[in-house]
Amino acid sequence: MTAEYVTPGDTPRGALPGRPAPFVLAAGEGERAHLFDQLFTVLLSGDETQGQFGVFTMEAPRGRAIPVHAHDDVHEIFYVLDGQVRVAIEDDDGAVLDRVLTTGDFGYVPAGRRHQFRVESLRARTLGVSTGGFERFFAAAGERTDATMPPVVPVIPSSEQLGEAARRYRNEFFPDARLID
């Protein structure tokens, strides 16, 4: 039996294969979306891993903190590829682990934990891994793009669009909460 290799050129706009199949992506390829001032690039989705996990990158300039949120059944990691990212994670007792992660640092957010992050350096890039399916939240909440850089003008979704994406991808926002000053 010969393995079938899928490359982005085999599918429109660099889309992923959508099924468990070996594939490769060149730098900058993947499914991209702008949300707020960030560029998210999905490298591997739950479709390719039978729902087990998704892999994505986030690139953004220094900016405001992402709203406090939690995902009841979604685990998430942050691995800083370049720059500095402040991550604040609430534990079971309500105490907050608040750290600035720098290049090479790692953070883990267990499912159900409220958390927030903010880029602290001029620019930052992170690698994220989450429970499969959640990686599609960014395109649903923002807008798909062919751009390879974060947006010049932030992409601010309507409350309806953000709410629908949050419901669909198991993301709960806490608009009155702050974990990062």
Rank of each mutant, 00 (worst) to 15 (best):
Y5N: 13
P110M: 11
R13T: 13
T145S: 06
A21G: 02
L101T: 03
F117S: 01
S130Y: 03
P12M: 11
T57W: 04
A33E: 02
P110C: 11
D91N: 11
F23H: 06
S130H: 11
G142T: 02
D82H: 10
V152G: 10
L44P: 00
G46K: 04
G94V: 01
A139V: 10
T126W: 03
H115A: 06
E29M: 09
D47F: 08
L122H: 15
D176M: 12
A95W: 05
F134R: 00
D181W: 07
D10I: 06
V109A: 06
E164S: 09
V55T: 10
V55L: 14
R113H: 13
I180K: 02
R19Y: 07
G112W: 03
G63N: 03
D105T: 07
I66L: 12
V6Y: 11
E135A: 05
A60E: 01
V80F: 01
F78I: 06
F174Q: 07
A165N: 11
Y169T: 09
A15S: 15
D72E: 15
P157S: 03
D72Q: 14
D181H: 12
A70C: 11
V74Q: 00
S45P: 08
L179N: 00
S45T: 13
F53W: 13
R144F: 11
V85Q: 00
V6G: 04
A21P: 04
G51L: 09
V119D: 01
G142F: 00
R168F: 07
R178Y: 05
L122F: 12
T49D: 07
F137K: 03
S121N: 09
V68D: 07
V155A: 11
R125F: 05
L43D: 08
R99P: 03
V80I: 09
A60I: 06
G133Q: 04
G9K: 15
L35G: 08
P22V: 11
R99Q: 14
A95Q: 14
E172H: 14
Y5C: 10
P175Y: 10
F23C: 00
G54M: 03
Y169G: 06
D105W: 01
E31W: 09
V74S: 02
R136L: 07
G54H: 06
D146C: 08
I89T: 06
E76C: 02
D91A: 07
A60F: 07
P22Q: 07
G83R: 00
E120H: 08
P8K: 00
S130C: 15
H75R: 13
H75F: 12
D93R: 08
M149A: 15
P175G: 10
V55E: 03
R123T: 15
Q84H: 12
L25T: 08
V155S: 03
G14C: 06
D73E: 13
D181F: 08
F40L: 05
A15T: 10
V96Q: 05
L127C: 08
G46Y: 00
G128V: 02
E4Q: 11
D47Y: 04
V68A: 05
D91F: 01
A26S: 14
Q50H: 14
D91H: 02
